[in-house]
């Protein structure tokens, strides 16, 4: 038997007045997985995350969180934590006071609940006694994550957790989420940062206009038979361009290259492999070969554009 499901959604529909925010959502998230939620603005990501946190209840459909059917608002089982629309922090309190107040609210002893530990995990040890009013967006995000960690969640729901993070902050957050998943915590996060999702998530769900247009492993998304643009930097651009133009299945995009030494080619993976072999045989060194946009981003753009055309 496979790993148990932390989230099981069937035919979830949610409307606000005459706006359909979610339209028949089907979603399975396995326990211990980091699952990415991606979609254009207004796709329904925040609404779905709100349902997972128990802030609202679906108008129709069936939602189970950690094995509990959710039939009314604010009925998510213990072990669900996170935030939507940014972390809820009180600017007049310090980082430590924010967490201590939250711990006390849940009946935890602030001295033994591990406030210092979670602040250390998110890299806020140096500012524990600073008021949250002076925090940057990235620091607020990390403090919000620390607040969620305090409850030792089994399902962590995060809305755009990478917003405003500097590279060091991003590293802290990625490390925490990866460790949590390794320990069995399920993480569902939304983001517009494809590099984050690719670095963290084992599976993603792409939403467009309230519908799921893709849900599954990243590898499946990348393996979709789709042409991508690649940046190609070689030791001899002119010769490389000639070889690319002569290779079947390769389209050279002269307008796409902003760097004089870089060539942009559009191809499927097999044609690109053939080009690399030819370049090497011709004695041309390949110094850089990378997709212009990530496979996830390309798939996201293609799928959401398709959905818009259907609409």
């Amino acid at each position: 038997m496979d790993a148990p499901l932390a989230i099981r959604a069937r035919g979830i529909t949610k409307c606000f007045s005459d706006v359909v925010a979610l339209d028949g959502i089907e979603l399975d998230v396995t326990q211990g997985q980091i699952h990415g939620l991606v979609g254009p603005n207004g796709a329904g990501k925040t609404t779905l995350l709100g349902l997972l946190l128990g802030l609202a209840v679906a108008d129709s459909g069936r939602l189970e969180i950690l094995g509990t059917p959710i039939a009314r608002a604010l009925a998510a089982p213990d072990g669900v934590a996170g935030f939507v629309d940014g972390p809820g922090l009180y600017p007049s309190l310090t980082a430590r006071q924010n967490l201590a107040a939250l711990a006390a609210l849940r009946g935890q002893d602030a001295r033994t609940t591990g406030i210092d530990d979670v602040l250390d995990q998110v890299g806020l040890t140096d500012v524990t006694d600073d008021r949250a009013s002076g925090f940057s967006l990235g620091m607020r995000q990390r403090l919000g994550l620390a607040a969620a960690l305090l409850s030792k969640p089994r399902l962590l729901v995060l809305d755009e957790p990478s917003n405003g993070l500097d590279p060091a902050g991003k590293k802290h957050v990625h490390r925490v989420l990866t460790r949590l998943a390794a320990e069995g915590t399920t993480v569902v996060l939304s983001s517009h940062r494809m590099d984050d999702l690719e670095a963290l998530c084992s599976e993603v769900t792409i939403l467009a206009t309230g519908r799921v247009v893709f849900s599954g492993p990243l590898s499946k998304l990348a393996a979709e038979n789709r042409e991508l643009d690649y940046r190609l930097r070689t030791s001899d651009r002119q010769a490389a361009r000639q070889l690319a133009a002569d290779t079947a299945g390769i389209h050279v995009d002269d307008a796409g290259a902003r760097d004089a030494e870089v060539l942009v080619v559009r191809a499927l993976a097999p044609a690109l492999d053939e080009l690399v072999v030819r370049l090497v045989n011709a004695g041309i060194a390949v110094r850089e070969l990378a997709p212009v946009v990530s496979p996830l981003e390309a798939a996201f753009l293609a799928l959401t554009e398709q959905q818009e055309v259907i609409q």
Binding site: M1, L5, Q31, T68, A76
Partner: peptide
């Protein structure tokens, strides 16, 4: 095949007093 989490491991939502 997948399964939802066993019922005996579930802690129902507790409200704050």
């Amino acid at each position: 095949m997948t399964a939802t989490i066993a019922a005996d491991s579930i802690v129902r939502a507790r409200r704050v007093s």
